[in-house]
């Protein structure tokens, strides 16, 4: 990015009607990927001067306990429902979960889920990191996931969505192919980076379960309805060129007993629709990279404004 410029120059502007059509495998119309955030939150994390971790003095019993519920209860319920309806996960992973609760990571791996990094802990933020520190967490992420699962991470979702101006350049330099941190489109697109090729992968805040339940205060059935509407519109628009729908989840929310049943109906609905390419974020990125030529380098370096 262009540091301290009014326009950070992350990507080129492209009008929605002007796109060259993207064709998904099997001529599917909408690529649907489900992104469980498998996280570990520390009970007593060190302070970051730029962002407070817990709302309460430590221990924040409800905040911590709610997150811990994910690894004890929510994950298993959510994962079983996903597997039942044929949805693999693309995991936004606090990589320290590989040490703390390897049982959850192994379960996800055995289900054929992909892992990308969501930092070390969701209580350690990138704000204020120098380049060496940021390289250290990227290298840690690559090695930790490889050691635990045999997978090489392809993507990045910044820990607790905390970035530095260097993040995109660094993850591209390390060979990662997509970022989930940019919310400007319903299709993948090129991100301007110093080296390599980096895609923005449409993740979602708007239909993230956290937004659904704690920003928009939806009931479980209202959230399920929002997901179905999101799917129906993106599938219809995908007739003119493939779209992407991400369902970002936190099992301490969606795995609650009053929510999981309504969510299962969403998966049943999408799985029954022949227009859906039910896939993983890395597979979407691989397909795009293989089928859409990289733009000219000059544009990639400076960005058209």
């Amino acid at each position: 990015m262009r540091e301290n410029a009014p326009d950070p120059g992350l990507y080129d502007f492209r009008r929605w009607p002007d796109r060259a059509p993207i064709r998904w495998p099997g001529d599917k119309k909408v690529a649907v990927w489900v992104s469980p955030n498998l996280e570990f939150y520390e009970i007593d994390p060190p302070a970051n001067p730029h962002r407070k971790s817990w709302a309460k003095p430590h221990p924040d019993v409800v905040g911590y306990g709610h997150r811990d519920y994910a690894n004890r209860v929510g994950h298993w319920r959510m994962a079983d429902v996903m597997t039942k309806h044929g949805f693999p996960g693309s995991v936004s992973l606090s990589v320290a979960l590989c040490q703390h609760v390897p049982e959850v990571v192994a379960d996800a791996n055995e289900r054929g889920w992909e892992f990308f990094s969501h930092g070390i802990y969701n209580t350690r933020y990138s704000y204020g990191m120098d380049e060496a520190q940021e390289r250290a967490i990227i290298e840690d992420s690559i090695k930790t996931v490889r050691d635990a699962t045999g997978q090489t991470i392809k993507g990045w979702l910044a820990p607790a969505l905390t970035h530095t101006p260097r993040t995109m350049d660094l993850i591209a330099e390390y060979g990662l192919s997509y970022t989930c941190d940019l919310y400007h489109d319903d299709q993948p697109g090129e991100v301007h980076v110093k080296s390599g090729r980096l895609l923005s992968m449409p993740y979602s805040l708007e239909v993230n379960d956290h937004y659904g339940f704690f920003v928009y205060n939806m009931s479980p059935r209202e959230y399920a309805d929002a997901l179905i509407r999101q799917f129906e519109r993106l599938a219809a628009e995908g007739e003119d060129g493939g779209t992407v729908m991400c369902i970002p989840l936190h099992s301490y929310l969606i795995g609650q007993p009053h929510r999981i049943g309504a969510f299962e109906e969403v998966l049943r609905h999408i799985a029954a629709d022949d227009r859906a390419w039910i896939t993983r974020s890395g597979d979407i990125a691989d397909h795009y990279l293989a089928n859409v030529a990289a733009p000219a380098k000059a544009t990639a370096e400076e960005g058209a404004v």
Binding site: P46, N48, P49, R124, G128, M129
Partner: peptide
């Protein structure tokens, strides 16, 4: 503000 080494 930079982060102390202990943050990692």
């Amino acid at each position: 503000m930079t982060l102390d080494a202990s943050y990692l």
